[in-house]
């Protein structure tokens, strides 16, 4: 579904959207793998939006920082995503940049905060950090 660059970009966006701090972030919890599984199943309708946006994101990074998106610092990546939220672009976008950021943020949260059985909240790390415990 994604080429190597697109996949690296996807992981870097996940890392930006749910960063690791004193608690694990999205990558450690498996949100990137969750997204792939999601896009192969209930999320198939989003695949072309992701493909096109991830490629455009890479171009944005190249134009702005002469680097690939995955190489950007957390601050650079975050600022770039904020610019996209305002639809400020330098590369060519075939899909709405702000809509993509909002959509992917929602999908990341679904993986991270939903039940660990989905694959994006490994060992319930997000739940531990907010104090939710699944109890029967």
């Amino acid at each position: 579904m994604f080429d190597a660059t697109q996949y690296a970009t996807l992981r870097a966006v996940v890392d930006c959207m749910i960063p690791a701090d004193e608690a694990p972030g999205g990558l450690m919890a498996g949100v990137d793998r969750y997204l792939i599984h999601f896009l192969q199943h209930d999320g198939v309708g989003f695949v072309s939006q992701y493909q096109s946006a991830l490629t455009a994101l890479q171009h944005e990074a190249e134009l702005r920082h002469a680097a690939s998106f995955a190489q950007l610092s957390q601050a650079q990546a975050t600022n770039l995503l904020h610019a996209l939220e305002r639809n400020e672009t330098q590369a060519v976008w075939r899909t709405s940049p702000s809509a993509f950021v909002a959509t992917m943020a929602e999908h990341c949260a679904e993986g991270f905060y939903a039940d660990p059985r989905q694959g994006g909240n490994a060992h319930g790390v997000s739940w531990i950090s907010i104090g939710f415990e699944e109890r029967r």
């Binding site: 959207m17 960063p19 701090d21 972030g25 975050t78 943020a105 905060y113 997000s126 939710f132």
Partner: peptide, 28 residues
């Protein structure tokens, strides 16, 4: 938790990034 994220977050709180994560930790 995911219902809180989707339905109960204040409109002005960011939906991603460090601030979003901290808000979930504080607010939930």
């Amino acid at each position: 938790p995911i219902i809180f994220w989707k339905r109960f977050m204040p409109p002005e709180v960011p939906r991603w990034g460090q601030a979003a994560k901290e808000f979930m930790r504080h607010a939930y």
